[in-house]
């Protein structure tokens, strides 16, 4: 990033190649739509580019990058919610009562927890389970699971204390457990 800040010719391309899949990966699961996620990811990188001179080396670049990602995603989701275009944040498990799969897309898909799921089915179940989380839980889960960031780093990104992140992740995992466990009941039979 320091090379980008110094207008190093190739650094920005290199930085993009290193982080673009990670940013898009987080955004896809935050907003639920691939094309929108890519647009937002471009917005993230443009913000990075515009703010390159303000980058403070003391902070970890990935923390800075995902802070921008979180802000961009939050803005987009708020904007969408206001326009009521798409309900990109499904109801929380508690709101629907019981296992949301019984009410949601999983039920519609005809997937039954009584049989072993193949890899693509399991992937879909997990995707839908992630969608049942609220925006903050989802962000915290994605950063903890796939970026392996600490609670403190996630707190920096989401402007929350580590203790709040601890509670947030605990609730998120409890929700995920509620949704996914019926599919994992077969125990190790679920091979992926």
């Amino acid at each position: 990033m320091l090379r980008v800040a110094a207008d190093d010719a190739h650094a920005f391309e290199e930085l993009m190649r290193r982080y673009q899949n990670r940013v898009v990966g987080v955004l896809v699961h935050l907003v639920g739509k691939r094309d929108m996620a890519e647009d937002l990811a471009q917005d993230v990188f443009m913000r990075v580019y515009r703010a390159r001179k303000r980058y403070v080396p003391a902070s970890k670049f990935s923390t800075w990058l995902f802070t921008i990602t979180n802000n961009v995603a939050s803005n987009a989701l708020r904007s969408l919610a206001r326009r009521k275009e798409v309900n990109v944040t499904p109801a929380t498990p508690d709101a629907s009562g019981g296992n949301p799969i019984e009410h949601g897309a999983l039920a519609a898909s005809g997937l039954m927890p009584t049989r072993q799921l193949d890899k693509s089915e399991m992937s879909e179940v997990v995707r839908l389970a992630i969608e049942t989380l609220n925006e903050r839980q989802r962000m915290a889960v994605l950063l903890a699971k796939f970026e392996q960031l600490s609670y403190a780093e996630i707190g920096d990104i989401m402007d929350m204390t580590p203790q709040a992140i601890k509670s947030l992740l605990s609730r998120a995992r409890a929700n995920l457990r509620q949704v996914l466990e019926p599919y994992l009941e077969q125990g190790e039979a679920v091979k992926v």
Binding site: Q20, N21, V24, G25, V28, H29, R34, A37, E38, A41, K119, M122, S123, V125, V126, R127, I130, V141, K145, F146, R173, L176, R177, L180, E181, Y183, L184, V190, V192
Partner: peptide, 17 residues
């Protein structure tokens, strides 16, 4: 149970561009 559910997230598709 928490661990098992967390590991199940490995199945989540990671899109690439």
């Amino acid at each position: 149970r928490f661990d098992r559910v967390w590991n199940a997230l490995d199945n989540l598709e990671r899109p690439t561009v």
